[in-house]
Design a protein around this nucleic acid. Sequence first.
DNA 1: CTGTTAACCTGAGTGC
DNA 2: TGCACTCAGGTTAACA
Length: 277
Amino acid sequence: MPELPEVETVRRGVEPHVLGQRILRALVREPRLRWPVPPDFAAWVAGRRIVGTDRRGKYLLLLLEGEPGAPPDRLIVHLGMSGRLLVVARDVPLRKHDHLDLELEGGLVLRYHDPRRFGAVLPWPAAQGAHPLMETMGPEPFSADFHGDYLFQRSRGKSAAVKTFLMDGGVVVGAGNIYAAESLFRAGIRPTRPAGKLTRAEYARLAERVREVLAEAVEQGGTTLRDFAGADGRSGYFQQDLYVYGREGEACRVCGTAIKSLRLGNRQSCYCPRCQR
DNA sequence: CTGTTAACCTGAGTGC
DNA sequence: TGCACTCAGGTTAACA
């Protein structure tokens, strides 16, 4: 499910409900996520106040009040492929795969739901410094560090397909299968081109389109194909704006040519053979 | 080092 | 209906 726009949509949906709220109690029904929820998790979060939210790549962060004067601890939430983080009333009945609840003092519950359990909920004390997961990440697409020249430099000597390169979280965070395909379409670049062979100008275009696509998708509340929902359970709308993803065999919305599909790194990759060279 | 593949897990869809 | 099979928005461990 969730690439950067979906995670950002969830963050924005969650934030107003949780800001300043104290977590009264945590209930872990199923600790077996991508990484196990540690046994002391409930004790670690109980009584803590949520002082902020943040996002790094596809990771949603809840900032928890630490010792006075100390930086906030973090609760790292990853939605994997099928995860949801919902704000619900306390009496909303449990469904299958509701793995974890954070009960807030105002009466609401932050509920983590994830059928495939590819996601994670991890406590991360500030005293432990940066999480290893965040250490190896590339720049945020909306940061000043992300631009065409950066992609150009990073890609030199690489023979891997440009789409694979773009989806590598060590290069830039946030673009998964949908948005990599859409960005490449808008930039007019074929996903199979070896990353090291693109020109500086092509990367300038690509960086711009990556930002554009992600920004539009955030604006639309993300893309809902199956599993994704915002914190309020509602769908996103960006699926209406897709040019290539999931449109194999359909007519290109720009030139009418049939959209083609192939597999790159075991991922379906759709493109327009006429618009993308 | 780079690049590719399989694996993690459940559910939905398809074809027989 | 049911069974076997394929595929799905992410990430990483294991391999060549």
